[in-house]
Amino acid sequence: MSAAVSRHISVLGREAVEFLAPRAGGIYVDATFGAGGYSRRILAVAGARVIGIDRDRTAIAEAFDLVEQAEGRLTLVQDRFSQLDEVCASQNAPQVDGIVMDIGVSSMQFDRAERGFSFRQDGPLDMRMGQEGASAADVVAVASEKDLANIIYIFGEERHSRAVARAIVRARQEKPILTTKVLADIVASVVHTRPNDIHPATRTFQALRIFVNEELDELQSALHASERTLKPGGRLVVVTFHSLEDRIVKNFLNARASRGSGSRHMPDVERTAPSFEILTKRPVVADESEIAANPRARSAKLRAAERTANASHDADTSFDWPTLRTVMKGGRA
């Protein structure tokens, strides 16, 4: 087992798998495989089968030992988790018993300077989970000042987003912004924090990472794919680390668990029947011991639901935030 895999700990791993309730003969999807923390717990149930999905080829490559140990019960697929319904169909499992997903970047990616996710180690300004498409450096080089401000404000909830965007545009006119340290220094020049606060660049880096990897778009699409793929009685478990992510999951589940308000213009027979029953009235959070062992757990929220036998709802794939395609196409301004 590689050092990277062995030191990664899945946040709320025990709670997530308890809600998933794996059983012998069941088929489960670890939609954001990472280092396989959830998969290992599921595979501990004799006879359970796991389909692991990750867009990062490194995560797939480093888990071949686990594939061997699973003796045919673990299949790994390099793909986006938004495509989980197509992945499952390709694995002769169009309907599954459970899906678990951990939204965000893994500790392995943060720890490797060459991946460019962290400002704590100097490296190329990359941030791509799948190591393809536009990088964070590309976005910083091309996006207009207005787009940069919107990205940093919406995805990073950075109240100094306009000042950061101006500083980035001013700096890139002098020379390209190619490394994590250079960008972090630019942000720190206009965002000032008190001692013991988070690093000034934290929110800007978070925003760029979410934007480059289209994480919110992916999440929304993955939730719809899960609804189509789960069997009646199948469980969906989602762990998020950002308020926007949690809001998307909460709103999705609330909409799917509701029978609709109805009206005199819409007879009862035309109302959409609930496709999920919510299992967590409030999100599950990490306890103090887990937070002490893994500070990343502090912002984690777990929500779970069980699929009903009713038909899937129509998918809403409209996004109320800047998209990678439109921003990169728009160019500088």
Rank of each mutant, 00 (worst) to 15 (best):
M1T: 10
S2K: 07
A3G: 13
L12W: 10
G13W: 09
A21C: 08
P22C: 14
P22G: 05
A31P: 04
T32F: 05
F33H: 00
G34V: 11
G36V: 01
G37H: 07
R40M: 12
R41D: 13
L43W: 00
L43C: 06
G47D: 12
R49C: 11
G52K: 06
G52N: 01
R55E: 08
D56E: 04
F64M: 09
A70C: 10
G72A: 14
G72Q: 14
L74C: 10
L76V: 08
D79G: 03
E86F: 03
A89Y: 01
Q95T: 14
Q95K: 10
V100G: 07
M101F: 03
G104R: 05
S107F: 00
Q109F: 01
G116H: 09
F117G: 03
S118G: 05
Q121E: 14
D122Y: 08
D126M: 03
G133C: 11
A136T: 12
D138N: 14
A149S: 10
N150E: 14
Y153C: 07
Y153D: 05
F155W: 02
S161Y: 01
A163R: 15
A165P: 04
A165W: 01
E174C: 07
E174H: 07
E174W: 05
I177R: 00
I177Y: 12
L178F: 10
T179H: 06
K181I: 03
A188I: 00
H192Q: 06
P195I: 06
D197V: 11
I198K: 13
A201T: 04
R203G: 00
L208S: 03
I210A: 03
D217R: 11
L219R: 00
R228S: 06
T229C: 10
L230E: 09
K231R: 15
G233I: 03
G234N: 04
V238K: 02
V239M: 12
D246L: 05
F252P: 02
G262E: 14
P267G: 13
D268F: 13
V269R: 15
E277S: 14
T280C: 11
K281M: 12
K281H: 14
R282I: 13
V284K: 08
D287Q: 13
R298N: 09
R298S: 09
K301W: 13
A304M: 14
N310T: 09
T317S: 13
D320A: 10
V327C: 02
V327T: 07
